[in-house]
Amino acid sequence: MVNYCVYQDRCHAEVEQKMREFLLIDEAKEEIILYLLKENFLNEERFTRSYIRGKFYIKHWGKTKIRMHLKQKQISEKLMNMCFDEIHEDDYLKTITRIYEDYFSKQKGLQEYQKKSKTIKYLMSRGFEYEKINDIFD
Rank of each mutant, 00 (worst) to 15 (best):
I75D: 06
S76A: 12
E77W: 14
E77C: 14
E77A: 13
K78R: 14
K78E: 15
L79K: 11
L79D: 10
M80G: 12
N81K: 15
M82C: 13
M82Q: 15
C83Q: 10
C83I: 07
C83Y: 07
C83L: 11
F84V: 02
F84P: 05
D85A: 08
D85T: 11
E86P: 09
E86F: 10
E86G: 09
E86A: 12
I87K: 09
I87G: 06
H88T: 02
E89P: 04
D90H: 01
D90N: 08
D91I: 02
D91M: 05
D91V: 01
D91Y: 02
D91A: 09
Y92M: 00
Y92N: 01
Y92S: 01
K94I: 02
K94Y: 05
K94P: 05
K94E: 08
T95D: 03
T95E: 03
I96P: 02
T97F: 03
T97P: 04
T97S: 11
T97H: 04
I99K: 08
Y100N: 07
Y100M: 04
Y100A: 07
Y100D: 01
Y100R: 07
Y100T: 03
E101Y: 07
E101L: 07
D102Q: 09
D102L: 05
Y103M: 00
Y103L: 01
Y103H: 07
F104M: 05
F104D: 05
S105L: 01
S105G: 00
S105Y: 03
S105K: 00
S105M: 01
K106G: 01
K106W: 02
K106R: 11
K106L: 05
Q107E: 02
K108E: 07
K108C: 04
K108F: 04
K108H: 03
G109T: 01
G109H: 02
G109P: 00
G109S: 02
L110D: 07
L110I: 10
L110A: 11
Q111E: 15
Q111C: 12
Q111F: 14
Q111W: 12
Q111H: 14
E112K: 14
E112Y: 13
E112I: 14
E112L: 14
Y113L: 13
Y113D: 15
Y113V: 13
Y113E: 15
Y113C: 12
Q114E: 15
Q114V: 10
Q114K: 13
Q114N: 12
Q114Y: 09
K116E: 14
K116Q: 13
K116D: 08
K116R: 14
S117H: 14
S117I: 11
S117E: 15
S117Q: 14
K118F: 05
K118D: 10
K118E: 12
T119M: 00
T119K: 02
T119A: 07
T119W: 00
T119I: 04
I120Q: 05
I120L: 00
I120M: 06
K121M: 10
K121T: 12
K121A: 13
